[in-house]
């Protein structure tokens, strides 16, 4: 199993917003929902590589800033009627600390 790495505090991420973690040049977007759940996705929209971290978070979804595809944060699946899927990363909270599995 991959190991948990501390990447920051919950409050580094705005509610209904996102911050990126640069993992050896590959960006991983960490999202924070209105319920303070956190999710992590590869920061590339399956459509045309849009930066999901810049999208609008709503419910458990994020809307890509370039052409508005919606991606389900829990599964990484693109929300129908569009199709596709984004690589998910394990992420969890320990208290206020955000831990990412890589």
């Amino acid at each position: 199993m991959s190991n948990w790495t501390e990447v920051g505090q919950l409050n580094d991420i705005p509610r209904l917003g996102s911050r990126v973690v640069d993992n050896n040049g590959e960006e991983i977007a960490i999202f924070r929902t209105s319920e303070d759940q956190v999710f992590a996705l590869r920061n590339r929209c399956p459509h045309k590589n849009g930066p999901l971290s810049e999208g609008m978070v709503h419910g458990n979804k994020v809307a890509c800033p370039l052409h508005n595809w919606n991606i389900d944060l829990t599964s990484g699946e693109v929300v129908a009627p569009d199709k596709g899927c984004v690589r998910r990363h394990e992420v969890k909270l320990e208290g206020e600390t955000v831990l990412l599995a890589i």
């Binding site: 990447v7 990126v20 050896n24 890589i102």
Partner: peptide
């Protein structure tokens, strides 16, 4: 300014890559 930069930058030197 923070929101314009990654919240964390990891590279293999610090962390063995899995």
């Amino acid at each position: 300014r923070l929101q314009f930069v990654p919240m964390k930058t990891l590279n293999s030197e610090e962390k063995p890559h899995v």
